[in-house]
Design a protein around this nucleic acid. Structure first.
Lengths: 332, 332
DNA sequence: AGAATTATAGTAAACGTTTGCAAAATACGC
DNA sequence: GCGTATTTTGCAAACGTTTACTATAATTCT
């Protein structure tokens, strides 16, 4: 059995209200009694029961982090950013992997609200957050890595269309035309934005937009490899390709090499995200970097500010759109 | 304000005890009243307050996962295994990164016990778990990826000495002698075990154990690269090297290439862990695979079994030592 | 029909804290 | 010393549940 405040009170012979005050450094308790209480608490190896405290204070000092899959190399860094910032503020974080399943996402959100987390950081799989509303109600949320949120929500993300533009522009300017686009699921909001950047760049540089050069699959490496091979097999032969994310891009490089294309001479490829592998000399992927760790940090900063406001309704939504950053390596 | 059980009781005009029973599917409440209660609960978008429930049941259905760094490619998979298994059993998991700092580890454990997690899974940075004892007391723990635990603790890990043996043996049998060992911090328990396997293999195959061929640094990729270069600069020229973990091994490959060595002909290298990158064709690292995801799952299985026991004292410790698995790729 | 049984509902205590308010103790001023 | 101001303490309610126990209502049995 864990020692409670009452145990201490009994031993030190004061009321447990006094013990509570002493333990919380409230003023109005005689230094000497406080000392005795603290000593006894230490002797009993007392640990305050955060559950009981949470019940009366209506605050758990916990937040939920809901992401698709920590195993996907994009997320560990944002998780770390979230965790670091939370920890510094005295918050703990529940990690939840939705595995890209919509109902698992919903179940988690329900579970977390049951546990009365003080806030939620969500990288949603659902492309719209409408469905989530019913479950969220009173819990503050900040979305991460999406813009598809209803009017009064906060988020932090990067400028995907600019990123797509930058990637495509580089390819065009280095003469790697025609440039293809290989992306993951077509209905992803993120993909649509990057695709828009791609198209915008093509237009600005007077390149034709040829639908045969744009393909959609999923976010797996193998897919990139398969798609590029399929493409050239069908006779569409890009000189450059913008892979909507790094995993795809790496797959593209691998597939291209398999069919004898030299990177970047025969085919230049640029990715998106700058996952850790991208910088390995063996890969050396030119890519659009997202400040993943910082995104995590910012998200909790916004969230905590929001949690701090007593008057929840009046908090202005915050929308932080970070700058993408072209990091040039050997693949393009 | 969130709806409570009392709100429902008031509206449906029953006592809140009845509401509680209805919501928990306890028998002894008339089907019709139950129906009315459930309907009202749904209408009010009622979410049970797990905090209040936890207080009386002395169970939070949460566990803590304490690891060094989710950003290290070894951990996401075990975290995922933990999370999946926990989720299936209705538990949530707190993610805590100690950043390899001992006192941060301690602080986290203290925090988590304050939050009254039902159990803890720890990949400890401290090479001995003695220090942790005071903080743990009543909380069930299972350690992961270490054997340095006091007598009555449970853990799941792999057979590191066997892994080290396998790696070294392969190198010897393919004629890649002399074989070097490059490891992380010398006082790591894990390292010592792998090193033991290395030495054992050398002995079994009648190879000399030459201390100039074994080096210790840290677990970073750059370190591997630096060390191999330094080694040959000093005139000790192994034909094979066993990198104590994959990051190191990859660094070794990179460093070797930089100084013109061909892999695996001039230098064969085998790593340890089988992190996701290892299988990339550009790397194609021969390595000792750990079943990371399964380790996570097993850890929670053991933990939950332990939590389920009312009589905590009598639970026999469980020690699960998984088999390492040599996966042969191109680097050796 | 009445007793005995069973199904349903309510009362109240408990979980371990925090906190407003009142009581007691101490210090201060003259 | 006595009244007053101030510091230190205690009492009790509250947070939202669960649950043992008791009370009432409904059903079954003879």
């Amino acid at each position: 059995m864990d020692a409670t405040i009452k145990d201490i009170a009994r031993i030190v012979k004061v009321s447990y209200a006094t013990v509570s005050r002493a333990l919380n450094n409230k003023h109005g308790v005689k230094p000497e009694t406080r000392k005795r209480i603290l000593e006894e608490a230490h002797r009993l190896n007392y640990r305050p029961n955060a559950i009981a405290r949470g019940l009366v204070k209506k605050q758990t000092h916990s937040i939920g982090l809901v992401i698709p899959d920590i195993t996907n190399p994009f997320y560990p860094e944002v998780a770390r950013g979230v965790e670091d910032a939370a920890q510094e503020a005295g918050f703990s974080v529940f990690l939840c992997n939705t595995n890209w399943e919509r109902d698992r996402e919903l179940r988690y959100i329900e579970l977390l609200t049951s546990k009365r987390v003080d806030g939620l950081i969500i990288a949603p799989v659902s492309e719209t957050t409408e469905t989530l509303q019913r479950f969220l109600r009173s819990v503050p949320v900040v979305y991460v890595s999406t813009t598809a949120v209803s009017a009064h929500e906060s988020y932090v993300t990067i400028d995907n269309v600019k990123g797509g533009y930058l990637a495509t522009e580089l390819l065009i300017r280095t003469g790697k035309t025609p440039v293809a686009f290989i992306g993951s699921e077509e209905d992803s909001h993120t993909l649509q934005e990057r695709l828009e950047g791609y198209k915008q760049a093509l237009k600005d540089y007077h390149q034709p937009v040829d639908e045969r050069y744009v393909r959609f699959g999923d976010f797996k490496r193998e897919t990139g490899s398969r798609f590029i091979k399929k493409m050239v097999l069908e006779g569409v032969k890009p000189k450059g390709v913008f892979g909507e994310n790094d995993l795809l891009a790496i797959g593209i490089i691998q597939g291209a090499k398999e069919i004898g294309l030299a990177i970047p001479d025969d085919l230049a490829v640029v990715g998106f995200d700058d996952i850790p592998f991208a910088s390995f000399p063996e890969i050396s992927l030119t890519t659009i970097a997202q400040p993943k760790y910082e995104m995590g940090r910012y998200a909790v900063e916004i969230l905590l500010k929001r949690i701090g406001m007593e008057d929840t309704g009046s908090f202005p939504r915050q929308r932080l759109i970070l700058e993408p950053n072209l990091v040039r390596r050997k693949s393009a």
